[in-house]
Design a protein around this nucleic acid. Sequence first.
RNA 1: GGAGGAGUGGCCGAGUGGCUUAAGGCGGCGGUCUUGAAAACCGUUGAACCGCAAGGUUCCGGGGGUUCGAAUCCCUCCUCCUCCGCCA
Length: 429
Amino acid sequence: MISRDFLRKEFDRLPHLFRQRNVPAGALEEWRDIDAVRRMRLTQVEGARAARNSLSQKIGAKRKAGENSAGDEQLSKEIATQTLSLEAELKALDERLVPIEETLPNIPQDDVPDGADEAQNVVLKTWGEPTRFDFPPLAHWDLGPALGILDFERAAKITGSRFTVLKGPASLLSRALIQFCLDVHTREHGYTEVLPPFLVNSASLFGTGQLPKFEEDLFHLEGTDWYLTPTAEVPVTNLHRDEVLSWKELPISYCAYTPCFRAEAGAAGKDTRGMIRQHQFDKVELVKFTSSQASREEHERLTRDAEDLLERLELPYRRIALCRGDLGFASAKTYDLEVFLPGQNGYKEISSCSNFEDFQARRAAIRVKVEGAGGKPRNELVHTLNGSALPVGRTLVAILENFQRKDGSVSIPKVLQPYCGGLAEIRRL
RNA sequence: GGAGGAGUGGCCGAGUGGCUUAAGGCGGCGGUCUUGAAAACCGUUGAACCGCAAGGUUCCGGGGGUUCGAAUCCCUCCUCCUCCGCCA
């Protein structure tokens, strides 16, 4: 959420700050008009309350002294009756104001490239060369079933489309990847591992920005307030919801493995083959809580932590800066990492590393006690960041496609072999 | 699932209708003392909102109600604890 104070003070600049960010037409003007009336009503209501409070005090004193207070009691009642409609109006204005504020997206950092959609994203760096083969490389949806390690048909039978059964070495590799990612982050990158609940409530989803705007992307458990988590970002960021942290603790860095569940509403016909876009996938996620001063630097570091894994796995990738129009709702700046997939002869998103600044922290009330002017302690909103490092399914796809050999077998990246009991290659089951 | 008990500031905890402007303690911050630190002592220290300011309003798990007045009484929901049942 954007602060009300900021909206007021910077109102004239808002159309510029929100350009290309998909803000409904007229929403800002509507917000300004309601806010102006609301402040007038608030002042009136609070004045009436102050009058009643002082009357109540007076009544108490009179009664104690044994004096008659009937006149003051009558007056207090009259004020209450007169204020009733004013209070109702104030409540109604709030109920119109808050939904507008809740659906305004975050404001991008000033170095985020202009652009309406993904076509205007900017390639910042490329690591490695697209893998070359002296034979026509297969896509994983052909390679996997041929090896007998990916089974899309039976998954569809058990559950439906956009699910996959992993078998034998694929299942092993999946497990190895989770372990590998967590080990590197905890032992070398300074993250603390967390294993959170996979079901989250609506307050948590509101905190990170999935609700109320994106409910259709989620799986909701009927008759409950529980949703299947779409990413570990939700439970892990909400670890500190409604808390005041100490500046000494920052930055806090967590990594977490969870399965992720996405309804993929509106994705019909997109990436329907293979296991690129699934209703359920495993992912290791990085989440940081930082001071406002440190968040840009920590964003670079977090992105490097994700890239480091791809480099160790010998997977060619590039780093993309998302343009304003392609930025997610809550993000102030996002780097996407794209891995090279021979089966599609192109780069495909494998990680998304975002700085949300105080947008999520304001929604989730995550604060830090800092020293303010004159040494007085005061609360400041933290900055939250997160990134995938790495999603297991897409990484598995990248390994299968990049490490395939002419005879249809697949070699296993060196760093993963110890995690696979020394297994060096996958052959047909 | 059943029966009891309990939710008060960053933490602990007092408070059963108006001297609560939430006592006291811990922790934090500043100071005195000290070569430095510790201890001791002194001071200070919740949040949101309206307002240029003075000042004001709201918040004692959430919501609703009674009352001139609610942390305190009533209703309801949530969470935690204890015991019982069931269970990996």
